[in-house]
Nucleic acid binder design. Structure first.
Lengths: 169, 169
DNA sequence: GTTAAGTACATGCAAACGCATATAACTTGC
DNA sequence: GCAAGTTATATGCGTTTGCATGTACTTAAC
């Protein structure tokens, strides 16, 4: 396996046995679940060709019908822009994705999977999806899975709005 | 790897609504929520003294009433053992944690926060906890927070120690 | 007690990361 | 059209990561 794994979790709270606010408990539980599952998936023997982070990029590209910008990709991946730029570089050199100038914007790049990249994404994705389904259904009922998805989608949406600004409190 | 998401305008605007199994949709949503919130928290200006990953270590230590082993710490943190070993090394050099030999096991080390480390953990933790509470409650109701915590705790529990491994062949 | 196997942590090294900054192209105000 | 500001991506550089492996200690087998 190459370099699976791990984007840092961060715990919350002040260190007391239990946080005061239910939001902090929920976040901490989410981090624990994320870390636990990530470790389990990383232990699978399917990451020889691409690391989990690279797979994430391939997967995101696979979901797009048309080429996308690096900046768009960046919105979905937990990496700094320079790190993503270089990962794209490596994947291009390995022949898994294609980078072409954007005709509409000279600064931009348009990324898409090559057929080799798509093949690897599919192959790894099929196996990985099986692991995910196995591990998740082993712990959660169907309705819990539905609840989890709905709640997490709520959490994921609307993220980029609140930036600096004083919403002090 | 992060979850590919479906939030952008360019992304999967239509078809490809879902994976085959609800477990995969739930996992993808969890990854999206994790990435979105992590980015938002990382953008806070409270990480000057310690990075989020370092804070995670300090927080884990703060939760323990007695010194713990690196291997124990490793169970809670999404880092490789060598990376964690070195992070501990840095935190010791910075005077935030203490490393003493384990009297019961000559191979092991016992880690604990120094008072400086505890002070920083508390200070950062207080601010971070506020951000977490603000961002989570902005999107979820109290009952949703409770559901999320319960479901994630289920995911984190057995998932962590389950070592199915297998399926090599 | 001696050897073999296992566990806990550390270290060498190349790869990958983040931050700051550079470069190039688009946009705006005049 | 041109300077000034903004956006999209790339690059320099020091730091951190993971993998492979080393070292030290413990446990099991004989």
């Amino acid at each position: 396996m190459t370099g699976p794994v791990m984007t840092g979790p961060v715990m919350t709270g002040t260190g007391a046995s239990s946080s005061r606010h239910p939001a902090n408990d929920a976040w901490e539980a989410l981090l624990s679940a994320h870390a636990a599952l990530m470790k389990q998936f990383a232990a699978e023997e399917i990451w020889a060709e691409v690391s989990m982070r690279e797979y994430d990029v391939l997967y995101t590209l696979a979901k797009c019908r048309e080429p996308i910008r690096i900046s768009e990709l960046h919105r979905h991946v937990l990496l700094s822009q320079p790190a993503l730029s270089r990962m794209v570089d490596r994947l291009v050199r390995r022949g898994l994705i294609e980078r072409e100038p954007d005709p509409a914007d000279g600064r931009g790049v348009r990324l898409s999977l090559t057929s080799a990249g798509r093949a690897i994404q599919r192959q790894v994705g099929r196996q990985h999806a099986r692991s995910v389904a196995r591990d998740m259904t082993a712990r959660l009922s169907r309705s819990e899975l539905g609840q989890l998805e709905a709640i997490c989608l709520k959490l994921a949406s609307t993220t980029a709005n609140d930036e600096s600004e004083g919403s002090r409190q």
